[in-house]
């Protein structure tokens, strides 16, 4: 049979396959260039960006847990000026869409960032982080209250003509309500899930292991929760959904597509296998070949309940 079609489209961004790298697990792409062919993956999503450089949390910031890891990095990043000067030139050399994840402390900051990113030709689209659970002021409010989410997405929408993806937090009572609010504000797509708030304790010292006390859980441990939420949201909204949560293999990725995802993001897997995103795309292709499926899009939402 002919090679299957793995291409998908998210809000006008054409992806050669559905595999993107999740923000915060892949630096700015350049860090991984020696280990993975960046032109074999769907898109690169860069580390969450703010207007000013951000220091992040004290250490320890990470802790492995059974089948997963906790992180409380605290959104350390270089800020938009250094991003434009030092990171964009590399992204220009790679023939793969770059999507920039960003966050602000206020609606105005979100809008200002969107306006500035809108002017950068190398930026194919934006992913708004309204969901990082580590920052005491800012993200968390926008990510858990539908009205606040609506206002921030609306402000970004008005500041850019580029595709806008909203990354949703699983740390809410009803994720569908959040998804509706973002879709009402004319988001182009939704990505989920961000990390689940968790913690780890050291019995010997009777102290939390992370300096921030709590952190975000990611990795294979969260996959069942992520699948459930992707399925719920994909049923409820008309815009494309991007599935994230513990994807380690092509099988995992295809399960998310059955649940309704148009594309997926690979996160924690990049840490242990820097070529994970490329490998997962290849595994998806092999599955399509051996099951004689001509187009990966046939699987989107094909779950039989």
């Amino acid at each position: 049979m002919n090679r299957p079609d793995l291409s998908v489209e998210i809000a006008g961004i054409k992806l050669r396959n559905p595999v993107m790298t999740a923000s915060g697990t892949f630096g700015y792409g350049e860090e991984f260039a020696a280990y993975v062919n960046l032109e074999k993956i769907g898109a690169i999503i860069t580390k969450g960006l703010s207007l000013k450089p951000k220091a992040g949390n004290p250490t320890p910031r990470i802790q492995e847990t059974t089948g997963g890891m906790l992180n409380a990095i605290g959104l350390q990043n270089v800020g938009i000026d250094a991003f434009i000067e030092k990171k964009v030139p590399f992204l220009r050399t790679v023939n793969t869409p770059a999507i920039v994840n960003f966050f602000g402390n206020t609606v105005e900051e979100y809008a200002e960032l969107a306006e500035r990113l809108d002017k950068i030709p190398e930026v194919a689209g934006m992913e708004i982080n309204i969901s990082c659970p580590n920052v005491k002021h800012g993200g968390i409010v926008f990510g858990t209250e539908p009205k606040a989410a609506y206002s921030v997405v609306k402000a970004v929408r008005e500041a850019t003509i580029k595709p806008v993806i909203v990354k949703l937090s699983p740390n809410v009572t009803d994720i569908v309500e959040m998804a509706w609010a973002c879709a009402d504000a004319e988001a182009d797509a939704l990505s989920l899930i961000n990390t689940l708030t968790g913690m780890a304790i050291d019995l010997k010292s009777r102290r939390p292991i992370l300096a921030n006390v709590t952190g975000g859980l990611s990795g294979p441990a969260v996959k069942p929760v992520a699948l459930r939420m992707v399925w719920q949201v994909a049923k409820a909204v008309k815009i494309p959904v991007i599935g994230i949560g513990g994807i380690m293999s092509g099988t995992d990725a295809l399960e998310f597509m059955l649940a309704g995802a148009t594309a997926v993001q690979v996160g924690t897997a990049n840490f242990l296998d820097p070529a994970a995103s490329e490998r997962i795309a290849a595994e998806m292709e092999r599955y399509l070949v051996s099951n004689e499926i001509a187009d990966v899009k046939e699987l989107i939402g094909a779950l039989q309940v």
Binding site: T25, F26, Y35, G56, R61, Q63, N71, Q76
Partner: peptide, 16 residues
């Protein structure tokens, strides 16, 4: 020595 997830400057878990 530090805890780290990736070893290549992406996870930012090992900073000092």
């Amino acid at each position: 020595e530090a805890y780290m997830a990736c070893g290549m400057g992406a996870c930012l878990g090992c900073v000092v």
